[in-house]
Computed example of a mutant assay.
Amino acid sequence: MNISLATVLKKDLIKTDPSVELFAYSGRCMYGKRTIALSGNFSVSCIWKLIIKNRNEIEGFIKLEDIDIKHDKFGLGTIVY
């Protein structure tokens, strides 16, 4: 995930879930390569809603059609990257 995108999303997510974290993550089939990820108690659809809500700011650094969100669920939380 683009670090600028992650920062915008975290700014909104942290309002309702102060446990949201931004960190380097190596997901499934990434073979050790790292990317920026967000973890917390939210859904992937919540992430897309925030992207649409903040689209004017986000489109300043990445086209919406270029955003490729992947996710994993571990226990009670979700990781998007």
Rank of each mutant, 00 (worst) to 15 (best):
I14Y: 12
K15V: 13
K15D: 07
K15I: 10
T16N: 15
P18G: 05
P18A: 08
P18K: 11
S19Q: 14
S19R: 11
S19I: 04
V20S: 02
V20G: 05
V20I: 15
E21S: 10
E21H: 05
E21I: 12
L22N: 12
L22I: 13
F23C: 00
F23T: 00
A24R: 14
A24M: 09
A24D: 15
S26R: 02
R28F: 05
R28V: 05
R28C: 10
C29V: 07
C29W: 13
M30I: 01
Y31N: 13
G32S: 10
G32F: 11
K33L: 14
R34G: 02
T35H: 01
T35F: 03
T35M: 06
T35R: 07
T35K: 09
I36V: 14
I36N: 15
A37N: 11
A37C: 12
L38V: 08
G40H: 00
N41M: 12
N41C: 12
N41R: 12
N41E: 15
N41L: 12
F42H: 02
S43A: 08
V44D: 04
V44C: 01
V44I: 15
V44S: 02
S45Y: 13
C46G: 09
C46M: 10
C46I: 01
C46R: 15
I47V: 14
I47H: 05
W48S: 09
W48P: 06
K49D: 10
L50H: 05
L50M: 04
I51Y: 11
I51H: 08
I51G: 15
I52F: 06
I52A: 10
K53G: 07
K53W: 00
K53H: 07
K53Y: 05
N54I: 02
N54M: 01
N54L: 01
N54Y: 00
N54S: 07
N54P: 03
R55D: 10
R55Q: 14
N56R: 13
N56Y: 08
I58C: 08
E59W: 04
E59A: 05
E59H: 03
F61V: 01
F61I: 07
I62E: 02
I62S: 04
I62A: 00
K63I: 04
K63H: 13
L64E: 12
E65H: 07
E65G: 03
D66V: 01
D68F: 06
I69N: 04
I69D: 00
